[in-house]
Nucleic acid binder design. Structure first.
Lengths: 212, 212
DNA sequence: GCGTAACCTTACGCACGAGTAGGTATGCTC
DNA sequence: GAGCATACCTACTCGTGCGTAAGGTTACGC
């Protein structure tokens, strides 16, 4: 009424981002199925048919969220962990970028890893993203190994990488649930667990189950 | 008609277990929301009102699944990791029990960790269970530390425990998705990552971020 | 052998939410 | 300032699936 024209006409690109913002927010709070297109539309300050016109069905909308958040995250990590750095430096920067991202985009993280994992149609999409991450970590470990003239079987390496990625995801959840926690500090803690364990492994130290 | 009375009347306790079996199966395949009470009833070989009569609403049914699977798992682990054993032995037996359980109850695992995590009403329930696990692991680490006359701040310890639990969960997912994989072998791999890293930490070795 | 309680069914009400039909307003181009 | 494309809305349809009402049937105590 007074000054602000509460309903301005906006170009498509802008509205799409607003919708995605709202969708990420609502999906993260309610979960895929419990989230309603009406609530998303309302939260975006727009009516429902607009959402359908721009982003398509509910599934397509969720995939769009997944893609945007996933791309942001992988780019943040890839941008930080330059391949020419030594392995521990790379790992450290990657972890710092990762936890920094989660700390700054808690909703996005929730959508990516808490929702997509459970819902059948999207699990594959998410698994592919995670697989790329695992591959990167495995590559780092392999690189470090070869630099020392050592070697480990591919599967073995992959499983170790998987464990490290899993540990990071778990700490990311912890971070998302503790708003007061510091991402940088969390990254340091993860680095401790990951690097010390990995370092041992790289140096040929292995644990063996007791006989019997 | 002929010989097998396909619809035998069964006592409540038996039917309830059949219903829970069916529910775990359907929930794990479809996810909480996509699963329908009709399908669960049909899969249990019973009609829908019986499910409501015995286990209550859909939410209550899911909680019942969560409880049964969760109890089975924690008991399996607790039974294996006796407190009087040395720390590494305890960790090893706990991990072996854990991966053994996941390998044998893939559906239950899917319900517990892939579904419950995302759905709002149950996330708390699940978080509580995981918190108990983290506490146990943290307790083990603390015990091992004190035996060597060392000490670490409580939060620090908890975060390390959290990371280890997360890594285990992640490998459990990997195991659930690779039916050909051996639980025992997976446990060994996890033990390698966990114990070597933890051992370093316990011995006072820490990684520090580079200056700047 | 008969009542009664527990087991089990078919068949429905009802709410909620995905997706759409059809129409209005606003800015942009010439 | 006419015409057109694009942004945007209100108000619906319709499927799906939770939860229930009301009534059949089998076992078991006495």
């Amino acid at each position: 009424m007074s000054s602000a024209p509460s309903f301005k006409r906006l170009p498509r690109a802008v509205r799409e981002q607003q919708m995605l913002d709202a969708a990420v927010k609502v999906f993260s709070r309610r979960g895929f199925h419990a989230a309603s297109m009406d609530e998303i539309a309302e939260d975006a300050g727009i009516s429902k048919p607009m959402v359908y016109a721009y982003l398509g069905t509910k599934e397509e909308l969720f995939v769009a969220c997944l893609h945007r958040e996933g791309t942001r995250m992988t780019e943040a990590i890839a941008g930080a962990a330059a391949p020419e750095l030594p392995a521990d430096e790379r790992l450290w920067r990657g972890l710092r970028a990762f936890f920094g991202f989660v700390g700054a985009h808690r909703d996005g993280w929730a959508v990516l890893y808490r929702q997509a994992r459970g819902e059948q149609p999207f699990a594959g999409e998410l698994a592919a993203m995670r697989a790329r991450l695992v591959e990167v970590v495995a590559g780092m470990l392999d690189h470090a190994l070869r630099a020392e003239g050592r070697e480990i079987a591919g599967t073995e390496l992959e499983v170790v990488a998987y464990a490290l990625v899993g540990a990071s995801e778990s700490l990311a959840d912890w971070l998302a649930d503790h708003p007061e926690a510091d991402p940088e500090r969390t990254a340091t803690r993860m680095m401790n667990v990951a690097w010390l364990g990995a370092d041992q492994l790289l140096n040929g130290v292995t644990w063996r189950p007791p006989a019997g």
